[in-house]
Amino acid sequence: LEESTQTNDMEEIRPVLRKCYDFIAEVIFEGQFTGQEYLDGMDAREILKMTGQLLASVSVGYDAAYAETKKK
């Protein structure tokens, strides 16, 4: 996602965002809705901010778990 957004090319960014939406729907919300439903249900002004926050919440948990495992 970070690499594709640096280009500002929506043809490159759009498929990556779709994968992010699908990941959020399938993994974080355990399939309660689809990636498309996530996108459709969000306010367009908030979608990128909320998506970033949700993805960050997963990586922060991963980083903390990895740091604990590494210490042991």
Rank of each mutant, 00 (worst) to 15 (best):
K49H: 13
K70Y: 01
K19G: 10
Y21Q: 11
R45H: 14
R18W: 04
Y21F: 14
V16E: 05
Y38H: 12
D22E: 13
G52Y: 10
L1C: 04
E26K: 15
I13W: 02
Q53C: 12
M42S: 15
Y38Q: 10
G41E: 06
E3R: 09
E37I: 04
L55W: 06
D40L: 12
I13V: 13
L17Y: 06
G61K: 04
L54W: 07
E2V: 11
E3S: 07
S57L: 03
I47Y: 11
P15D: 03
E30R: 15
R45Y: 12
T5N: 02
P15W: 02
M50P: 09
T69E: 02
L39K: 09
E11P: 00
I13L: 04
A25W: 06
E68R: 00
Q36S: 10
Y21L: 11
N8H: 07
M42Y: 12
G52Q: 09
S4A: 13
A67K: 03
G35Q: 05
T69A: 01
F23H: 12
Y38G: 11
E3H: 06
F29M: 13
R14V: 08
S57I: 07
G61M: 02
K71W: 00
G41C: 09
D9N: 10
L1T: 07
A56W: 07
E12Q: 07
R45E: 14
M10W: 08
Y62A: 13
D40M: 12
S4Y: 03
T5F: 10
M42A: 15
E11D: 09
I28M: 15
G31L: 11
F29H: 15
I47D: 13
T34C: 09
Y62P: 07
D22S: 13
Q53R: 13
A64H: 00
T5S: 03
R18L: 05
Q36E: 08
A64R: 01
V16W: 01
A65L: 04
K19I: 10
A44F: 15
V16S: 02
D63T: 04
L17I: 04
P15Q: 00
I47P: 05
F29Y: 15
G41A: 11
E26R: 14
